[in-house]
């Protein structure tokens, strides 16, 4: 059974005013447990609106959201359960830090779950170790940390709730390449270690290609496609036509194909590209 399902999900902003906008238009989606889904789409395509439905921050205008087969808007209890089952980490999460120490900030989520003190401490330690937050840092004020450290603390704050589905909105935006790789590795490790479902919203096609198992493409309030990474990039032309980017290596291979070389059309990492060129060489094609 799918862990996350939306049924005809429609959301409209400012209903009943001249400013009414349909942000989501009957979205049907099923996400299997353990997937690492990348959500891509143009600004205003409904990505952020969609993910805010998964933990019940927004109430659907029509349709429903099911987490673990349970309609989250059925009662107050199901809604609260959804908040803890689905951990949502917003864009620039470092601006939500508020506690006196890093430890207390990471503990905020677990505390709200009404766990025992030992359990809270255990979870904070686990999340801190995972995200590379050191023991000395735990005692510091979150405002004394560097930007990248703050980001990791904020992500730890959501991970400490140990949600079944972890959703991160643009977790790498505004970070340098090293910080970006650290965060991406961390997200992949989290999924591999815990078997949770992870969803990341991203603008960077390279990031998506590196870590995702599935790609959800949003376009104009609807789901354009939901497929595996190679399948998604096989339709590179369509992605480009709706104003989305594809990894640079895919663009190069599109060009090669246009020039008449018999290359595969689902290349999206440099490693694959090397393998593909090796294959062509062996087959005696002049490259």
């Amino acid at each position: 059974m799918s862990i996350l399902k939306t049924d005809n999900l429609t959301y409209k902003y400012s209903v009943g005013t001249p400013f009414e906008v349909t942000a989501l238009d009957s979205v049907n989606l099923e996400v299997e447990k353990g997937e690492l889904v990348a959500v891509i789409g143009h600004t205003g395509s409904g990505k952020s609106t969609l993910i805010q439905h998964f933990n019940g921050l927004l109430k659907p205008t029509e349709g429903s959201v099911l987490v673990d087969g349970q309609d989250i808007w059925e009662s107050k209890k199901t809604l609260r359960d959804a908040r803890f089952k689905v951990g949502l980490c917003f864009q620039y999460p470092e601006y939500q830090l508020f506690e006196e120490t890093v430890f207390a900030d990471i503990a905020f989520g677990p505390k709200n779950m009404k766990l025992s003190d030992e359990e809270i401490k255990e979870r904070v330690m686990r999340a801190a170790e995972f995200t590379g937050v050191t023991k000395e840092m735990l005692e510091k004020s979150p405002f004394d940390l560097s930007g990248g450290e703050k980001r990791r603390v904020a992500i730890a704050g959501v991970m400490a709730m140990e949600p079944e589905i972890l959703i991160l909105d643009e977790p790498t935006s505004g970070l340098d390449p090293k910080g970006r790789d650290t965060i991406l590795r961390l997200i992949r490790d989290y999924r591999d270690n815990t078997g949770s479902t992870v969803m990341i919203v991203s603008h960077s096609m390279e990031d998506v290609a590196k870590i995702a198992t599935k790609v959800l493409v949003m376009n104009r309030a609807t789901v354009m496609s939901y497929d595996t990474v190679p399948e998604t990039y096989r339709h590179a032309e369509e992605l480009l036509s709706v104003g989305l980017d594809v990894p640079q290596i895919t663009k190069i291979f599109m060009d090669l194909k246009r020039r008449g070389l018999p290359v595969r059309d689902d290349v999206y990492t440099v490693e694959q590209a090397v393998a593909e060129i090796d294959r062509l060489r062996k087959e005696g094609v002049n490259v």
């Binding site: 921050l57 908040r83 951990g87 949502l88 917003f90 939500q96 905020f108 989520g109 709200n112 779950m113």
Partner: peptide, 13 residues
């Protein structure tokens, strides 16, 4: 609103 949502997502009531 953004911060409220972020804290709600961490279970703030």
């Amino acid at each position: 609103e953004k911060i409220t949502n972020a804290q709600k997502a961490r279970g703030a009531d």
